[in-house]
């Protein structure tokens, strides 16, 4: 019986399967994606003090920086930052429990909550700082748990978590397509953040299919940036600075 899992192939040419393009020129930093992500993925809110210690559980955050000084000061375009779903992810090799593994089927970085023992090595090794750790069993007073999404595991204390590219939506759409005996079409579903974005700054889809919308956008804009690409992480998210 074939029980061998094929080895991970690393090459510069390798592209992931799912990817995002983010147009920073139109991102207004309105936080709709952050709220949508929290609602979709059962993120805990941590309260003022823990949030102040940098322990908030945002899977996506909008970075902004200041350039110059008054009056020539400028805020850099909003930069939604979430797990970049690296093709060669720095978080993966450091996990002693194999909780941070690469999905060969979906080409995503997985976080397997039931394997995670909370060493936090992955978060330390993540150059994008997009992983968040459950420092406590954060309380959701009744009846708030009624809104929990049953498709996503509710994490407990001591577990690392991060953006999954809404893998539950990927699975659901794939399952639906399969049940109807067809292939998944581009744009049939999207992630919670892309779905909410009022400016349509986030687009999600297959980056390995040249005719998909994300691939077209990458070609059209022509000057996309992948963050910290020089580290060899092969990120799946492309940013357009625009302007």
């Amino acid at each position: 019986m074939n029980s061998k899992i094929p080895e991970i192939k690393l090459s510069e040419e390798q592209t992931g399967k799912w990817g995002m393009v983010i147009d920073q020129d139109i991102c207004t930093g309105c936080q709709a994606c952050v709220a949508a992500c929290a609602m979709e993925n059962n993120l805990s809110f941590v309260g003022e003090v823990d949030a102040g210690y940098g322990r908030s559980m945002h899977w996506i955050r909008i970075e902004r920086f200041w350039e110059g000084e008054y009056p020539e000061v400028k805020m850099t375009p909003g930069q939604p930052m979430m797990c970049q779903q690296c093709g060669s992810a720095p978080c993966e090799p450091v996990c002693p429990a194999f909780a941070t593994v690469h999905s060969q089927a979906e080409q995503l970085n997985l976080q397997v909550y039931n394997r995670c023992v909370g060493t936090r090595y992955c978060a330390n090794n993540c150059p994008y700082q997009v992983r968040s750790f459950n420092w406590r069993d954060y309380v959701r007073p009744e009846p708030l748990p009624n809104q929990l999404n049953p498709d996503v595991t509710v994490r407990r204390m001591g577990v690392m978590e991060k953006c999954t590219f809404c893998i539950q939506r990927i699975h659901k759409a794939e399952d639906k397509a399969k049940s109807e005996g067809r292939e998944l079409t581009d744009g049939e579903f999207t992630t919670a953040c892309a779905q909410a974005c009022p400016a349509n700054a986030i687009t999600f889809g297959r980056i390995d299919q040249p005719e998909s919308l994300v691939s077209q956008l990458i070609r059209k804009h022509g000057h996309g940036v992948k963050h910290l690409e020089e580290l060899g992480t092969l990120p799946s998210v492309t940013y357009f600075k625009g302007g």
């Binding site: 309105c30 949508a36 009022p198």
Partner: peptide
């Protein structure tokens, strides 16, 4: 019987399937 997630109504002429953070929450 439980509301799980708000999404924008893609046919609605005002927001065309989009929401703000408050609509999500």
């Amino acid at each position: 019987g439980r509301a799980i997630k708000t999404e924008g109504n893609t046919n609605h002429p005002l927001n065309l399937g989009k929401t703000c953070a408050r609509g999500q929450a």
